[in-house]
Amino acid sequence: MFDRILNMFTTVANETHGSVLVVFLIGLFFGVLIQYSRVDKFEKIAGFAMLRDTVVPKMLFLAIGLASIGLYFMVEAGVASYHPKPIILGGLIIGGTLFGISMAILGKCPGTGPVSIAEGRIDVLVGAIGGVFGGLVFTLYYDFFKKIMGESLGKTTLVSYFHGHENLVVLVFGIFLIVVSIIIPLRQEFDDVDLEQLKE
């Protein structure tokens, strides 16, 4: 097992997708951001499912809106490229449904879960163990899951449908999401720690 963990670092080091340090720092920044904005809390994601907390959609739509505009112009400038995922209808619809149900119950997603384990959440650690078994089952029965996922209908992007008007489409898309993030009313569900800190 030790040599495979070592192999993880050498795999990253041998590719051209950032040095081990850069990739670690990307994660570090992500961890700080998720923790400092408190979106790793059960109250944020399960709270959104109950429509009692809107911090997650507000933050997410703002980030997507800004990133979509920035990324388009970075691609134009030649300093980034698009890597869209394939349209696999079975996978997207069945997978997305399972993912949404699970996210509402666990109150985490695969990115925010580890950050909440890092602040001492034991229930999420149990969820992560469940997740590792999920990864195991998926790996072992990949042939079966592949049938559910279905054929890829291509890796298209919205901008590619509007040849000649890409700039305008990206701006409209990005600004629309930014406006959505602002007009969603801010609601917050607090947990015990928040309530303690509010009294201070």
Partner: peptide, 9 residues
């Protein structure tokens, strides 16, 4: 939910 979260993703 942890199990199905990963299967879904």
């Amino acid at each position: 939910s942890g199990f199905f979260l990963i299967i879904g993703a």
